[in-house]
Nucleic acid binder design. Structure first.
Lengths: 140, 140
DNA sequence: GAACATTCCTTTGTATACGAACTATTAATC
DNA sequence: GATTAATAGTTCGTATACAAAGGAATGTTC
C-alpha cells in the first residue's frame, strides 16, 4: 500500500473500496480466460444455488440494483451463459436458467472462486480469517 | 443481509464488494447536498493532503487508474472543485489545486467523512474496529 | 369490474473502473 | 544530437452501479 495521508486510512469507505478493488482485480484476471466478468460469475453462482429465479429474486439475493441487473442479464443471455424464459403464470416475469455451456464449466468456475478466496485469505491466520468474514458480514 | 447460498459468504470478493457497496451508498447520500461524489470527495482529501500534486501522483496516492482519474478531474475542473495548472517545467504535467469553493467547505467535508466512518464502525467494539482496519489494510 | 396501486423489467443519464491505443513531451543512450 | 525508451494525459470501448422515469402486467379495493 502506498503512503497515505495519516487520516485517510481512517476512512472506512476508502479502506473497503481499495480492499475490494484489489480482490476484484485479481479475480477478474482469473476469470478472463472464461470470458466471464466477476458479476457474471456471481450471477451463475446464484442460479446454481436456485435455478429458475426471476431477476427480482436474483437482485435480492445478490444485492444488486434491478437496473444494473437488466444489463448484466441481457449480456449474459446474448453470450449464451444464461437463458431467459417467460413465466406462463406472470407476464411481467422471466425465469433465469444457467446454460449448458455454463453448467459444463460449473465445477471449474466454483474452483476459481475458491482459489481466489484462498489467495485473499492466505496471509491471515485461521482466527483472523474467521474474524474478518464475521466483521464484513456485520457491515452488510 | 438476505439469505445467501451457504457458500457465497465464503466468497471474499462478494463480502468485500457488498460491504463496500453499503458504505459507499451511505456516504453518497451524505455528500449529495454538496453536489460531490465519493471519488470527488476523496480527490479533495488527497489535494488537501498535498496541494499541487500531478494527476499521476494523485493516482498513486489514491490507487486509481489514470484513465479513470482523467474523467473525474475533468468533471471536477468543470464544476469548479479543482484547478488544473500547467507545470512550467514539464509540458506533460498539470498540477492540481483545490478551488476556493472547495477550501471553504473543507472542514465540513472532512467532518462528513468522519461521520461516515463512525456510522460504519459504531456497531463494533474498539478492539474490533482496530482489527478490522488492520485486516483491510493488509488486504490492500 | 373499473380505478388505483404495486410489481417486474427496461431505458436513460451520469459516474466510476480499467485495458488498450494514442499524442505529446521528456529522459536516456549511444 | 538523433534514436529510442519512458512518462503524463487523453480517448475509446466495455462493464458495472444506481437514480429516475416509463411501459406492461398483476393485485387491490371499493
Amino acid at each position: 500500500m502506498p503512503k497515505l495521508p495519516e487520516d485517510l486510512p481512517e476512512c472506512m469507505v476508502f479502506l473497503l473500496g481499495k480492499a475490494y478493488q484489489k480482490a476484484h482485480s485479481n479475480f477478474k484476471k482469473q476469470l478472463k480466460k472464461y470470458g466471464l466478468t466477476n458479476m457474471q460469475h456471481l450471477v451463475l453462482e446464484g442460479l446454481w444455488y436456485d435455478e429458475g429465479m426471476t431477476a427480482a429474486e436474483l437482485c435480492k439475493l445478490l444485492i444488486i440494483d434491478k437496473a444494473t441487473a437488466s444489463g448484466i442479464l441481457e449480456r449474459m443471455a446474448e453470450t449464451g451463459w444464461i437463458m431467459k424464459k417467460q413465466d406462463p403464470d406472470d407476464g411481467r416475469t422471466q425465469k433465469l436458467y444457467p446454460s449448458e455451456k455454463a453448467n459444463q464449466l460449473k465445477e471449474k468456475l466454483i474452483q476459481e472462486r475458491k482459489k481466489a478466496n484462498q489467495n485473499i485469505l492466505k496471509k491471515f491466520s485461521v482466527e483472523e480469517q474467521l474474524l474478518l468474514k464475521r466483521l464484513l458480514r456485520d457491515l452488510i
